[in-house]
Design a protein around this nucleic acid. Structure first.
Lengths: 146, 146
DNA sequence: CTATGTGCAAATCCTTTGCAATCCA
DNA sequence: TGGATTGCAAAGGATTTGCACATAG
């Protein structure tokens, strides 16, 4: 994990940005919650545990910055707020599908990719350069049907 | 089209709601723009051309109402506002995929459905009742690559 | 030192709500 | 008439921005 942080530091430095202590604590929270799809406010609350004086605006600005650098990526489950996850969108977005329960809101992940055919067809028929895709499957989970 | 409007009228009446003149003009706008993915504000502006005294709140309330009745359905292209289209989600949402250009924002539609396999697998492996899905493909269109 | 980063509060954007007036079965 | 519907203005929630101060290199 130390490596990741150093890595991010370099990445930022390469474009004249700094990995300040504030940014580092935000990054840590993201790293410690790789699998959680945190909202900005959730990140804020977690960062506040370690650094009580952060501002929400800083969290937003940092998440934006990290997204620009493709250090994290944001996603949208239709609940009115963006959610963030460590990792670039190529790694965790593409070929990564979300199954969302309409009742409890729980999110499951499916790593499979059966979409290559479809992407090919889109590229060909529409003369469109596909760079990513996003699949959400809605329904009711085991518990909520009980 | 007269039929559609009468139809919607019945549908609403069945649950003690009225197809008021205001609601009818909103419905007309949606019908005249079946293919457009209008935002609430866009609907509002179009309705105002015919009925200058509508309120934006009424448009929101009506869109909500029509969605509840599955007369229209909403979608989200990640631009921070909901967009609406005439037709129930079964007809136009499910089995209807969006191809979105990251540069010009243009949206293409693909009607195919190669996802049944995947849905089956999800139902089985996760014990999840699938009711809908949403697929967005991002990339660059012909023009924007030129 | 000097540009960059930060906290705070105010501003913004989209959407929802409260309320009094209006409409329609 | 009385509940549904509407317009307006105010409220709401998520996010952004302006600004003066703090800080890193």
């Amino acid at each position: 994990m130390k490596d990741v942080i150093t890595d991010v530091g370099e990445k930022l430095k390469a474009r004249e940005y700094k990995l300040t202590p504030r940014r580092e604590s935000i990054l840590r929270v993201l790293l410690e919650n790789k699998d959680k799809h945190l909202s900005a406010e959730e990140v804020y609350n977690l960062v506040k545990e370690k650094a009580p004086d952060v501002g929400l605006a800083t969290v937003y600005r940092t998440l934006e910055l990290f997204s620009d650098f493709d250090i994290i990526h944001s996603m949208d489950f239709g609940d009115g707020r963006k959610r963030y996850e460590y990792g670039d969108s190529e790694a965790t977005g593409h070929h990564h599908h979300h199954v969302i329960c309409l009742k409890c809101g729980k999110i499951f992940e499916v790593a499979e990719d059966l979409l290559e055919d479809l992407e090919l067809r889109v590229s060909r028929d529409l003369d469109f350069e596909v760079v990513n895709h996003q699949l959400k499957i809605f329904g009711y989970c085991k518990n909520c049907r009980a």
